[in-house]
């Protein structure tokens, strides 16, 4: 607990400090520095830039226990649970195919296939609902707050690219 002495320093977890698992009720939990928590919350510090690095682990009160520098360094089981939890907490389906993008009476309708199933997004315009964090990445947000992500739009199939070319 050396680093915890200075509360203005960021605590970085080593793989041995943490063990994550899932409770019988389906809730993310774990043992951190020997203490058992039956519910933990995880946050991405850089949700756009580093999706698998700098994961903030917090208790239910929202107090930070520490930061996981990189999921890849964790033991396999912990890493698997953490990844799963992140996917649940950051519900951002990855678009695998763009079926169509249509403008209908002032609203943009996107029919999408994602790695979590098919969905439809509704946007009021393009300039406020699309974000380009860099590279070929595009974050889509619809009016209800739902999000989807295109990892690299140029890597999608020809049909999807054709749909996107007109709007990006």
């Amino acid at each position: 607990m050396a680093a915890a002495d200075d509360k203005y320093d960021i605590r970085m977890f080593a793989p041995d400090d943490v063990y994550f698992s899932r409770g019988s009720g389906g809730v993310f939990q774990g043992v951190i520095d020997g203490t058992t928590y039956d519910e933990l919350e995880v946050y991405r510090a850089f949700p756009f830039l580093y999706t698998t690095q700098y994961i903030s682990v917090r208790n239910t009160k929202g107090e930070e226990l520490g930061i996981i520098p990189d999921i890849a360094e964790l033991y396999e089981e912990s890493a698997k649970e953490l990844e799963k939890e992140l996917q649940l907490r950051y519900f951002i389906p990855r678009v695998t195919r763009v079926d169509s993008v249509k403008q209908k009476s002032g609203l943009w309708m996107w029919e999408l296939q994602t790695h979590l199933g098919s969905t439809r997004m509704v946007m009021r315009n393009l300039h406020e609902h699309l974000q380009y964090p860099g590279g070929g990445r595009v974050i889509l947000m619809d009016i209800s707050g739902k999000r989807c992500e295109i990892a690299d739009w140029q890597a999608l199939d020809a049909h999807s690219r054709k749909q996107l070319e007109e709007v990006l």
Partner: peptide
């Protein structure tokens, strides 16, 4: 959570 949520008991 971001983009969604969970109902916990």
């Amino acid at each position: 959570a971001v983009g969604g949520g969970t109902l916990l008991a």
